[in-house]
Design a protein around this nucleic acid. Structure first.
Length: 807
RNA sequence: GCUGAUGUGGUGGAAUGGUAUACACGUUCGCCUUAAGAGCGAAUGGGCUAAGCCCGUGUGGGUUCGACUCCCACCAUCAGCACCA
């Protein structure tokens, strides 16, 4: 018997599998389908570390398992190769991004193949391939034709380091998500996608998805739907009206002031002369502050009275009008009605500037005193007071009543608002899909005709970002200057490029039909494969890729290109793998562990098994370099068990354990509990380590292990004279008769404490009386039952018998 | 501040109303070996007057014959959002 030496068997099988094409997926088949997808990586120059493989191994185990279960499984991989990270890396290395990208892809693909991720490499796609981004451009033109892409030059988020505009989703705490640089506001010409038109659908359809709740929650919050009412207030001595959005019109009798955001257009018109210089100074200071500075200042309220008053139609009360930077220009109507008794920010503002505070809601505590402390500010529940015809009503009832009243009187208008903003889509960078539009003096903006796609990204020597608000492409006259497709007159090409997210918005569709040059995806194939049944990746894309892709998908659905409303039916989020020191793996910290070094030392099967075993799939876990030895030892024991002499008879104990194992592993894979699946295989091996298995038992054991450890199982399968390949076998059947033990251990409790256990034969398991007598007879239990009368006996068949005695 | 999740040995974790700590790491001892390593076997929550008993799943209370599991309050950690009207 030879030893288990992974390096001698793994490359051998990898070659054979690839040559035989056993992971190739037929386009359409009679079998039921499963589409199991990883979030495809961007080809970073550092390659992948063991953390990336936690997700890839999981999806691979699932894919292999479903193949055993008789499904036609689509499990593809590709490269998200356009965008900032790839371009910045290329600039750093001084090599053209097309060259560095190709090199990085080769490296990462090699890492994946080394671990035998069972992708169908015939379907490999790359977002920077001309034949791929032709269709990305095609979709853009559809968006343009549908009126979902528009040009604007409003101020937008600008990253001074990356020298490009950013979408709202790419800014976190006022910093660029990519490089952490403080974001500035800059006015540049932009292409913007009208994602807000889909806000309602994006929110509604979330319900039907099998996604982790926290990711759904993040999308709900990001979309930020709010139903309320815009209430108009006349400005005293002026024809102007101020419109304030509120979700709490029930408290409107408690309004004592109005606050305008510094950006509000009415300020100039209605500020009284004697206040003008102070107000102007305040606005100047406020608008200069970045979001970060405002956060740094904390919640201390600042502001200026502008000298005018508005009238509350409900009670004729005069409301002084103020300007303050706590009111944001881009939220609601940019103006707020101050109800200091029932809103904590309004309360703080009123206290700061000694404005009056009126109580209009009495909360659960029944406190009716004047509101003088922040803790008294009621928000959630209560009864109306000081509100004329609303008095005595519950606040929810009052809200409906007052809304109707305000609308009837023409003082208010119900509205729904969203936090979601339109998607700033163009980038002033080189390494992206050119936006397929031209600017014609006569015809305006014209889309490039479909038959002229793809619009090729020109090869250039200089691709560094310019920082001027134009992309490097603008500096290439022979590319920019063109003719108008409509009138043949002189025209200029749009020189901005698409953001990183464009290619990943629809890539899952292309895997279905990667080589089609007629259409984006063939309709029949799309119908067969969509939606993605199981999508696996990191949670960092919750309001980026996962939202953008849903948006594009819905547009494609609405124009009849595809047949499903949603792209990703089920989503699982993989937990981070930290370095052994508990920090993020990073080159600069010199704590990165690559799959290459683990494969070299232990083999790919050990790496795969450890990724599965190290802990719950969604948990953040540190890589433990000593622990990995445990799964390596396990594989050695499997090797030994299979290599032992065959048994001729089926031992019941072993057969029972094996049947249970078959069920347990299948169930665990389906709910992503890979760690307990591996643990139960270890238990099985520990059980049979000193006994013998029949050939058939050995084979079934190998199939159960095969999704996790494809190489060792193929090698041992061959040694058992199994037909090539183990990976084309069926998942073993189980027999119900073996799932129940012959004897069961029943716990004996007295007054809730465990006192003994008794062994019960299968045939009397449901006979309470016999079990009860056996339990009473037990010596250990007897000690606690003696001299006491049993008041109550509870028997859970096969599990526990519990006696309650009188004290 | 708000929302969500989590809290179990020295470590990763198992158990979702029924023997808490499966499986693995680590540690200790034994076998084997000239030796080391590997391998094999055993032990491994704490305490005590120790074949037994008591305590023990963040803290305090509750429901139950029985609670890591369900309910209430609090504390801590992580994640997301954050002056959102």
């Amino acid at each position: 018997m030879h030893k288990y030496i992974p390096s001698q068997i793994e490359p051998k099988w990898q070659k054979k599998w690839e040559k035989g094409g056993i992971h190739e997926t037929p386009d359409i088949s009679d079998k039921p389908k499963k589409y199991v997808l990883d979030m495809f990586p961007y080809p970073s120059g550092d390659g992948l570390h063991v953390g990336h493989f936690k997700g890839y191994v999981a999806s691979d185990v699932i894919s292999r398992y479903f193949r055993f279960k008789g499904y036609n499984v689509l499990h593809p991989m590709g490269w998200d190769a356009f965008g900032l990270p790839a371009e910045n890396y290329a600039i750093k290395m001084g090599i053209h991004p097309s060259i560095t990208t190709a090199k990085n892809i080769a490296n990462i693909k090699n890492q994946m193949q080394m671990v035998s991720l069972s992708y169908d490499w015939n379907r490999e796609i790359n977002t920077t391939d001309l034949n791929y981004y032709k269709w990305t451009q095609w979709i853009f033109i559809k968006l343009f034709e549908e009126g979902l892409a528009y040009e604007d030059d409003a101020p937008i988020n600008w990253c001074p380091k990356d020298k490009t505009g950013l979408a709202n989703e790419e800014v976190l705490d006022g910093k660029c998500v990519r490089c952490g640089t403080k974001v500035e506001q800059k006015k540049i010409r932009q292409w913007i996608l009208k994602i807000t038109k889909y806000a309602e659908k994006l929110l509604e359809d979330l319900e039907s998805l099998d996604w982790p709740p926290f990711i759904k929650e993040m999308q709900v919050n990001w979309i930020g739907k709010k139903e309320g009412i815009n209430i108009s207030y006349e400005v005293e001595g002026s024809k102007e009206k101020i419109v304030c959005f509120t979700t709490r019109p029930d408290t409107n009798f408690g309004a004592t002031f109005i606050v305008l955001g510094p950006e509000h257009p009415l300020i100039k018109k209605i500020t009284k002369k004697e206040h003008l210089s102070r107000v102007n100074r305040y606005i100047e200071q406020a608008t200069k502050k970045s979001e970060l500075d405002r956060i740094a200042e904390g919640r201390k309220k600042t502001g200026e009275f502008i000298g005018s008053y508005a009238i509350n139609n409900l009670n004729g009360k005069k409301l002084p009008i103020w300007v303050s930077d706590f009111v944001l220009g881009n939220v609601g109507t940019g103006a707020v009605v101050g109800v200091p008794g029932h809103d904590i920010r309004d309360f703080e503002f009123a206290r700061e500037f000694k404005l009056s505070i009126v109580r209009v809601v009495v909360g659960k505590d029944g406190d009716t005193s004047a509101i003088t402390r922040a803790e008294q500010v009621q928000e959630k529940e209560g009864t109306m007071v000081n509100s004329e015809f609303l008095d005595g009503m519950d606040i929810h009832e009052a809200t409906i009543k007052i809304m109707n009243y305000l609308e009837e009187k023409g003082w208010g208008e119900r509205v729904t608002t969203y936090h979601l903003r339109d998607w700033i889509f163009s980038r002033q960078r080189y390494w992206g899909e050119p936006i397929p539009l031209v600017h014609c003096e006569k015809c305006g903006v014209v889309a490039i005709p479909e038959d002229q796609l793809p619009l090729k990204l020109p090869d250039v020597e200089k691709y560094e970002p310019t920082g001027t608000g134009e992309s490097p492409l603008a500096a290439i006259p022979e590319w920019v200057n063109t003719t108008c497709p409509k009138c043949d007159g002189p025209a200029r090409r749009e020189s901005n490029t698409m953001p990183q997210w464009a290619g990943s918005c629809w890539y899952y569709l292309r895997f279905i039909d990667p080589k089609n040059d007629k259409v984006l995806v063939d309709k029949d194939k799309e119908k067969y494969w969509m939606p993605v049944d199981w999508y696996i990746g990191g949670a960092e894309h919750a309001v980026l890729h996962l939202l953008y892709a849903r948006f594009w998908h819905k547009v494609l659905f609405d124009i009849g290109v595809i047949s499903t409303k949603e792209p990703f039916q089920k989503l699982s989020s993989v937990g981070l793998v930290l370095a052994a020191d508990g920090r993020k793996m990073s080159k600069s910290l010199d704590n990165v562990i690559t799959p290459n070094e683990i494969v070299k030392e232990y083999g790919a099967d050990t790496l795969r098994l450890y990724e599965a075993f190290m802990g719950p799939f969604e948990n953040t876990i540190s890589w433990d370099p000593t622990s990995i030895n445990g799964v390596y030892k396990f594989l050695n024991r499997v090797w030994e068990v299979i290599n032992k002499e065959e048994s001729n008879e089926t031992e019941i104990k072993v057969e029972t354990a094996l049947n249970k194992l078959i069920v347990k592993v299948a169930k665990d894979i389906e709910v992503m509990k890979f760690n307990t699946a591996v643990a139960s295989m270890m238990e099985f091996i520990n059980l049979v380590f000193h006994s013998k298995l029949t050939n058939d038992q050995k084979r079934r054991l190998l199939i159960v292990l095969a999704p996790f450890a494809p190489h060792i199982t193929e090698e041992l399968w061959e040694m058992l004279r199994g037909k090539y390949s183990i990976h084309q076998q069926s998942w073993p059947k189980f027999d119900n008769k073996y799932l129940e033990e012959e004897e069961t251990l029943v716990v004996v409790q007295v007054n809730g404490k465990v006192r003994d256990t008794i062994l019960i034969q299968k045939d009397i398991i449901n006979n309470k009386e016999i079990v009860q007598n056996l339990a009473i007879a037990s010596k250990k239990a007897q000690k606690f039952l003696a001299e006491k009368s049993v008041k109550k006996t509870i028997y859970v068949p096969g599990k526990i018998i519990s006696f309650v005695t009188s004290s």
